[in-house]
Nucleic acid binder design. Structure first.
Lengths: 229, 229
DNA sequence: TACTTGATGTGGTTGGACCACACGCCTAGA
DNA sequence: TCTAGGCGTGTGGTCCAACCACATCAAGTA
């Protein structure tokens, strides 16, 4: 057992037992090292790992905002991990898109019309109407789809959706340049978004799921997915 | 930008550009530190992060098996990340099970009868017939379900299935103790497994998906999911 | 030829030192 | 008394030098 893994185990046990909860602060690196009888280096390596997994956030200085505190950002961990494995060409972009269609379709079929996340999605849609800039439009589009995923009320699916999006963020951005007529595409996307929300409002989960699948696959087909990694 | 993140960027760029591929070896920590003009500590912190994400594997000693090499184990990263966030009570076990049902049902509906992974699943089923020990049976059960997920041919779904399983491994193990009659349950599980494979062989993806969903949800219902974390 | 032994190179770990930063007390001035 | 500035303290961030354990390979020896 390597030393930093011992520290990882200790922290995980503190989390599991509830002695360390969301928002809680870890002991200072130096005192934790002394407490566990390991070097500060090993403590720091463990903290780095947990930081990369979205479990901790290290802040310098003094006061309430400083120190190493417990956060909860599953998306960060899954996202960077997926991105790295895409970089090694072991997770094809096609599979990521396919998984996104699967998750988001399910979320749409499960979304409750009265969900707050859905109201947020509707708000975002209005903002997109009065949005001429391509970049801003895409940013709102991302938030719309994430809100759609949240509406299903499944934290794991929400986190996975966010991480999938993050993993192919750059890739999707480059795809936009391939579109023959952005204005026309934007008009179509707006209409499809409204159709999805309408289906959910009608309690027609099956139709909503189908619309979402067509929406996503249609976009990638038009922008030219399939050129490999 | 913290120093170790600079190292992370460098390594990721090497992966993206293909100058560092699967099975390739990273420069030695000391020489990489000198090359990037950072301390060995920072290099090690970056390596730790990538190791936790299943991208690298560090090995001591000398020879071909030693050094820091590039691997591809997306399951490790997603699994430990999910497990940690379950520990912080921010990812309910119920959501994990629900997501597993979603992914595995989809995989079953997509699985091709001629897939090698499906042949592997059938082999595992035979082994389970001549398996009396509860623990060994469950181990084979895990491998069966992972093989089922692989049969869909989507690397992302396979990785996510594996990580979901890993995240609730301990939890599922404890559940087994709740079963009123293990022998009867084992008989039922065997029959359901065969039903799933039969549906796939019949090219009846819809039935296969439904059987998988019933199979998983039935097990957790019988073992008593819902007692919280 | 077969075995032993040492050199070499790898990651693993440690302790110490210094830096930048942010807060909060504490003092000097108005 | 009240205010403004400075300095002490504690935090993480970084670096260095050294040592250890381990695995391999090559040279030397029986």
């Amino acid at each position: 057992m390597r030393t930093h893994q011992l520290v990882l185990q200790w922290i995980e046990s503190q989390l599991s037992s509830g002695q360390l909860a969301l928002g809680g602060r870890l002991p200072a690196e130096r005192s934790l090292a002394e407490q566990l009888q390991v070097s500060r280096t090993s403590v720091r390596e463990a903290i780095r790992v947990l930081e990369a997994m979205g479990v901790l956030r290290a802040g310098v200085g003094s006061g309430p905002e400083a120190g190493t505190v417990v956060i909860a950002d599953p998306t960060a961990a899954l996202g960077s991990a997926l991105r790295l494995h895409v970089a090694t060409s072991h997770l094809p972009v096609r599979d990521i898109v396919e998984t996104r269609v699967l998750l988001e379709s399910w979320a749409a079929s499960r979304a409750r019309p009265e969900s707050p996340a859905l109201a947020e999605a509707a708000r975002l849609l209005e903002q997109m109407d009065s949005c001429a800039e391509t970049e801003a439009f895409l940013a709102l589009d991302v938030r719309f789809h994430l809100a759609l995923a949240d509406a299903a009320g499944n934290a794991v699916v929400s986190a996975m959706m966010g991480s999938l999006r993050e993993a192919i963020q750059d890739y999707a951005g480059r795809l936009t340049g391939n579109l023959p007529d952005w204005e026309a595409t934007a008009v179509r996307l707006r209409a499809e978004h409204r159709g999805i929300l309408a289906a959910i409002s009608d309690h027609d989960g099956g139709r909503a799921a189908q619309l979402v699948a067509d929406h996503i696959e249609g976009y990638y087909a038009e922008a030219g997915l399939g050129s490999g990694s």
